[in-house]
């Protein structure tokens, strides 16, 4: 059975990765999951300088989902390179760094800093974070500005570049086309959906940052739809995510056109969600006599 996939030059031994922001730097979950079993670890959004993140409350539970407004709290790229990457070297797993910035120059500088860095398999370019005042989703909501960021990142690094797309757009396919033309090796989707909740006791927004990003099973149909549309629009590989909690969820993404999947919010509920998704995919392939996972990628498009 062949589970190996190639996401824009990143060879993953199986299609199951972790979604950025839900798995820390991997080590937080190392007691529950053998990280070496995963297809890839995508670490927390990393910026040039350390960021404290947004004020509390940062999360709010919603039906079958979670609204978050963490605000890219992270120790900054230097600490990631010096402190976290060395710890991940003990595991046989590609590490993908999610990078975020306020300006195009920030992204380019991060890409250049991480180029040639030992232990970095690729970059996921976060042009879709809804929780920061500058940058993030502002870049990803327009095909031209999204393409500009990717073009600069592409020029600054030899690493595989994955553009992480926002669902908060009129046409995600148009943004995917833009980043593909600008040199993205792959796309990952979706980031969270912009949302809001109000505490009726205090009559105030439930989140300190007022609005936040919705994730979890509640967003899954939106994510599957986005993967479906992007698959039809571009030829580069897709890493699909959004509410995946089980193998059957993951298989929907694969059949919609994702070559790999990432497990996000489900890690909070079940720390072993990633390996359970992987094991479920393996069983599905065995039961259906499928030798290579790639046979399933985009399978649902057949005849449509």
């Amino acid at each position: 059975m062949k589970l190996e996939v190639n996401i824009g030059g990143i060879i993953m031994k199986n299609p199951v990765a972790t979604a950025s922001g839900t798995f820390g730097f991997g080590l937080e979950y190392a007691g529950f999951v053998d990280l070496s079993r995963l297809g890839a670890v995508v670490v927390k959004g990393t910026t040039r300088l350390p960021r404290p993140g947004n004020p509390a409350p940062r999360i709010c539970e919603t039906p079958a989902g979670v609204l978050n407004a963490i605000g890219l709290e992270n120790p900054g790229v230097e600490a990631v390179v010096e402190k976290y990457l060395p710890c991940l070297k003990d595991y046989d797993v590609p590490v993908i760094i999610n990078i975020a910035g306020d300006t195009v120059e920030d992204y380019a500088s991060l890409a250049s800093r991480l180029d040639g860095c030992q232990g970095v398999a690729g970059l996921e370019v976060n042009i879709s974070c809804p929780n920061v005042k500058k940058g993030g989703m502002l870049f990803g909501s327009d095909p031209d500005s999204a393409a500009e960021v990717i073009r600069e990142v592409r020029a600054a690094t030899r690493l595989p570049v994955i553009a992480k797309l926002s669902p908060n757009v009129t046409s995600i396919a148009a943004v995917a086309e833009g980043v593909a033309r600008a040199g993205a090796d792959a796309v990952s989707l979706i980031n969270t959906l912009l949302g809001m909740s109000i505490d009726i006791k205090s009559r105030r927004p439930a989140l300190g940052n007022v609005m936040g990003g919705l994730s979890g099973p509640a967003v899954r149909p939106v994510a599957v739809r986005a993967v479906w549309q992007v698959y039809r629009a571009v030829g580069i590989p897709i890493m699909g995510m959004g509410g995946i909690a089980s193998a059957s969820d993951a298989l929907q993404f694969i059949m919609a056109g994702a070559s790999a999947v990432a497990v996000g919010t489900a890690n909070f509920v079940n720390p072993r969600a990633t390996v359970e998704v992987l094991e479920g995919i393996e069983s599905y392939l065995l039961e259906n006599n499928i030798r290579d996972i790639s046979q399933l990628v985009g399978a649902a498009h057949q005849g449509i």
């Binding site: 839900t22 820390g24 937080e28 979950y29 409350p57 999360i59 978050n68 963490i70 720390p271």
Partner: peptide, 17 residues
């Protein structure tokens, strides 16, 4: 006490100043 998601230091939700 604070609202928590992961409980293991990964999601960075449950902050106090």
């Amino acid at each position: 006490e604070e609202h928590m998601a992961c409980g293991v230091g990964a999601c960075l939700s449950c902050i106090c100043r």
